[in-house]
């Protein structure tokens, strides 16, 4: 037997972060590409002229602030779960969920204001693009809300809330991403509208 010969030749463990977390990041990359396509289409189309110019409704500041706040409460929920504080976790999730819904209704309110200013989905692409960017973001936000709802159900079912902290960290990462995505879109719109 020559087993000891292998001592120096130990195959190294390969890099491995949690595959589920990694999958989530890759999924977010694909969402980034959807918006990269839409916003670069926006720029290319705008450069061709024949583009309506309008004021962005100031209510968008409100919705941005709400979504940012929901990101903070989501973080609070995760931190509480790590400390195994069940009550605060559930409260954090409920507040996040509520703020997410308020954000969506604010976005609808913004659409109403746009319509009052004669900016429609149908018509000049300058207006249509705004609706599409907000709409596609809202669609993803709804998926984030569903994800949070699942977490909320899990938090009630779990014996110890710390059991779900990994799954919760995935859902809050996604939620932060959606928040960041909106801030990118808003900054983009302020610069290019």
């Amino acid at each position: 037997m020559v087993t000891d010969l292998h001592i120096k030749e130990v195959p190294q463990k390969q890099l491995g972060i949690n595959p589920k977390k990694f999958i989530l990041w890759l999924f977010m990359v694909s969402i980034v590409m959807v918006f990269a396509a839409l916003t670069s289409g926006f720029i290319v189309r705008q450069a061709e002229g024949n583009w309506i110019i309008y004021e962005l409704p100031s209510q968008l500041w409100i919705s941005t602030a709400i979504l940012f706040a929901s990101s903070l409460t989501a973080h609070w929920a995760l931190k509480s779960a790590q400390k195994n504080n069940s009550l605060q976790t559930k409260l954090g999730l409920w507040v996040t969920l509520g703020l997410g819904l308020v954000f969506l209704s604010t976005q609808l309110w913004v659409w109403e204001i746009l319509v009052q200013h004669d900016v429609y989905l149908v018509g000049n692409p300058g207006g249509s693009f705004l609706y599409v960017l907000m709409g596609v973001h809202a669609f993803h936000l709804i998926s984030g809300l569903i994800y949070l709802m699942i977490m909320l159900v899990k938090s009630y079912r779990a014996n110890e809330v710390s059991e779900i902290q990994f799954k919760l960290s995935l859902s809050t990462t996604y939620w932060h991403f959606l928040d960041g995505l909106w801030i990118y879109l808003y900054v983009f719109l302020i610069i290019y509208h």
Partner: peptide
């Protein structure tokens, strides 16, 4: 594929809006 297929999805979305919702992208 991860970087390019979402772009086709965006293009398809705008095309669907043009076809069915009357937009003019």
């Amino acid at each position: 594929g991860l970087l390019s297929f979402p772009v086709l999805l965006s293009a398809a979305l705008l095309l669907i809006l043009d076809r069915s919702f009357g937009t003019s992208f």
